[in-house]
């Protein structure tokens, strides 16, 4: 479904991605692991069009995403839930969700509201509250819910567990799993390697802009390198 090949991305003079390649098949849940600054977020931003690659290709089925702007990429069903939630603080919960469905026709979004509210009943209680007044966990639910409102074929999730209490982290990961089982393909970026690998089929490990390891999640969990670097020995 998604095939990234030989991707080079720069921030000014900084060479952030040095020719990485990876792929995600339809229906899969794939994780990108890596320390801070490894290039995980850069990879997602390049897929969703916020960054332009210097070289390399990003193919979604027959579409060449590296030539499109972010507003066009969303319309192809690639939806990016950014790091740090980035909900609109001066929109209510409802307005945030509606913004998520911006690229779609208004008549067809009714049932998606229902779907998001079943997934996150908390959001329904807070529907009229400003986004900026929500707790961190609620903001994360809203960010994922807003992403779902775009009816994604491929959902890019950047650090959904960041800054959340352990109980909430488990809940979020269970939800991600559930969304995947509904047929949404997911590319997940995480620092919480143990959690991420436990729900993923495959994973890639990034280090300073290159893929150093890839394989089935079950193999990665037992690999010495991943254990030492990300799972605390």
């Amino acid at each position: 479904m998604l095939r990234v090949e030989g991707l080079h991305v720069y921030y000014g003079a900084i060479h952030a991605l040095k020719g990485i390649s990876f792929s995600v098949a339809e229906g899969e849940l794939v994780t990108l692991l890596g320390a801070n600054g490894a290039g995980k977020t850069t990879a997602l931003k390049t897929i969703s069009g916020l960054l332009r690659p210097r070289a390399g290709t990003v193919a979604l089925e027959e579409h060449a995403l590296e030539e499109l702007g972010p507003h066009e990429i969303v319309r192809l069903g690639v939806v990016h839930v950014p790091e740090g939630r980035k909900i609109f603080p001066r929109f209510t919960v409802l307005e945030n969700l509606k913004a998520g469905a911006y690229a779609r026709r208004a008549s067809s979004i009714r049932e998606d509201f229902d779907f998001v509210f079943t997934l996150f009943p908390r959001l329904k209680e807070r529907a009229r509250q400003m986004g900026g007044t929500l707790s961190g966990g609620e903001q994360q639910m809203l960010a994922i819910g807003r992403g779902l409102m775009a009816k994604p074929k491929l959902l890019l999730l950047d650090e959904p567990s960041m800054g959340l209490a352990p109980l909430l982290v488990e809940q979020i990961f269970a939800t991600i799993r559930a969304i995947n089982q509904q047929g949404v393909t997911i590319l997940l970026v995480e620092q919480n390697a143990a959690m991420a690998l436990s729900i993923s089929e495959r994973g890639y490990v990034l280090e300073t802009g290159t893929v150093i390891l890839e394989g089935k999640a079950s193999d990665l969990v037992t690999s010495d390198r991943v254990r030492q670097a990300y799972l605390g020995g």
Binding site: L50, P82, K86, F88, F91, G100
Partner: peptide, 22 residues
């Protein structure tokens, strides 16, 4: 809808782009 887009861009242009706003 364009008003919503204007307000979204005013809050956060990158995230607005991710919503499909040109």
């Amino acid at each position: 809808k364009v008003g919503t887009a204007i307000r979204a861009v005013a809050q956060d242009p990158d995230t607005a782009a991710l919503m499909g706003i040109h």
